[in-house]
Nucleic acid binder design. Structure first.
Lengths: 114, 114
DNA sequence: AAAAAATGAAACGGTTCCGAAACAAACATT
DNA sequence: AATGTTTGTTTCGGAACCGTTTCATTTTTT
């Protein structure tokens, strides 16, 4: 993808994807939750609460609660770190991969229609 | 924009934009609110509550409350329709235009870095 | 071994959002 | 004019989220 998107193209892309998400009534993740989920899936492990909080510039409880919510949806899992029992390692799930893959397909498809 | 985005490219784009939004601690619009805002700015007027509710496949109160919230932020305005006083016409504002322009710039900029 | 620091989670109060139902006002129909 | 429809808003109880503070556990430091 070498070409930059024009202003109306970028907005139209956002609009199309948003429309699809709203209409499908999926488990609508907040911007924060979605960003956390993407961090977990796009960047190399290990992922800890503290590191995520620092990267997003939010408090730790924000991460904890987002993980609670997404864990309930099966999008992530938590496991204690054997090396340092204070740490919690956040792990990916099959369901989470599928969720993001569907999002990516949506973006890809709509980007071609512009 | 002729090239389609690959799956990881699409996700990285979403991630970058989400990160910027979360970190800037802007008035964080929900997916619904953002989609409504984009509908108002991208499609031809007039915009009514009923039409927006139908387009997004949500109930009318959802639209009303989103307009309340975004009106408080100065992103949209409401005016009664002179021809049919039952209707409420949703109108754009300078502030709303600037808000979306900034979003579009964000998307455009990040799309070039991929 | 004792004190300090770090990590993640829980508690608390306040705000916002939701879906469904009830509502007021304006128009249409008869 | 009276009834029924349409439009947008408000209300209600319940759920989710937020920021801050406090807590329990584990590790590090002294």
């Amino acid at each position: 993808m070498s070409l930059p998107l024009s202003t109306p193209q970028a907005l139209r892309l956002w609009h199309h994807v948003g429309l699809a998400q709203v209409r499908d009534a999926e488990p609508d993740l907040s911007t924060r939750q979605m960003t956390i989920l993407l961090s977990i899936y796009l960047e190399a492990p290990p992922h800890t609460v503290r590191a995520l909080a620092a990267k997003l510039a939010v408090s730790k409880p924000v991460i904890t609660r987002a993980l609670d919510a997404m864990g309930k949806l099966g999008l992530v899992t938590r496991r204690r770190d054997g090396a340092d029992l204070r740490n919690v390692l956040i792990q990916r799930t099959v369901q989470g991969s599928l969720y993001l893959e569907r999002l990516a397909d949506l973006v890809s498809a709509k980007s071609q229609e512009l």
